[in-house]
Amino acid sequence: MVSSFVTLHKMSYDTEHVRNAGDTPGTITGIPTFAELLENPSLADLYTSIRQAETATGPELVETTTVSKKTVYDYLHKLEQAGLISKVGDETGTAVYTAQEFELTLTVRETEVSITPKIIEVIAQKNEYPAIERVLEDYGIVTFALAYDLVNAHSEGEVTIRQIASLTDLSPGTTYDLVEALYSVLDLGDDDSTPTTYTPDEFDAEGGDLLEEYADK
């Protein structure tokens, strides 16, 4: 069997690795659409809107999205063909859609990262957060997914901002900006919680392999 690949931010992945989550996962067939979902915030927002609402119709989405009616229906067709949404009924002749859960597992420097709908929810807001857009554009989805996991770990006190910078190869400033953005988008920490500030000296190299340390957790 010949595998189908799509290049995205200098990486390739096999369609066999992109599957719907659940007890009986099925392979997502629309890899170009999946790739667009990672880059197009409007498409990501439409998918996220359906997922958050649990079910949605075309007319409902037209009312709540910023894209044109034609684009909404083009996106619905594209997502359905890709297996990312499915029809679950109809209301007076109007199709009702639900979002499919999925997980794409990638390995970066011996550490696994997963692309899930929660990351798509963040990508949907990238135009509002320059740090998110900058990391996605300059470093790609793999680095962004790793940073996403690390920021969640940071909110639990498991890693420091210095470690996130070291593990992702992001600059200290970009790391802090991204942590701050993800704290806002994901509503991490307490109401008064913000990422710990840093000074350049705090980013001196640490002993030991931080990536291995994180992977062990």
Rank of each mutant, 00 (worst) to 15 (best):
V135T: 11
Y13H: 14
G157H: 08
P59G: 11
T107K: 05
G140V: 05
V122L: 02
V142G: 06
T55Y: 08
E202T: 09
D90W: 02
D90L: 05
G89R: 07
V135N: 05
L146Y: 09
I161V: 14
S49H: 02
G22V: 02
Y148K: 07
V6D: 08
E121L: 00
V135S: 08
K69N: 11
E213Y: 11
S171T: 12
E54D: 15
Y139C: 05
Q81D: 14
E212R: 07
S42I: 00
F144R: 04
S114N: 13
E63K: 08
T55W: 00
K10A: 13
D204P: 01
G207R: 13
V2H: 08
R109D: 15
T33G: 03
G58M: 01
D74A: 14
A44V: 03
R134D: 15
A165C: 06
E137H: 12
F144E: 11
E60D: 04
I85L: 05
A44C: 08
E91I: 03
M11W: 06
D177S: 14
G207A: 15
H154C: 03
A53E: 11
P117I: 05
A99E: 06
S3N: 10
E63P: 01
S49F: 02
K118S: 15
S193M: 05
M1H: 14
H17F: 07
A124T: 12
T111F: 11
I161C: 11
H77I: 09
A56G: 04
E121Q: 03
T64W: 05
L38C: 11
D23M: 01
L170Y: 03
M11H: 02
E103N: 12
E16V: 04
K217Y: 12
K78Q: 15
E36N: 14
L8A: 06
Q81F: 03
S12A: 08
F34A: 13
L76R: 03
L84M: 10
D209K: 05
T33H: 02
S114T: 15
T27Y: 09
A124Y: 14
E128N: 10
T196I: 01
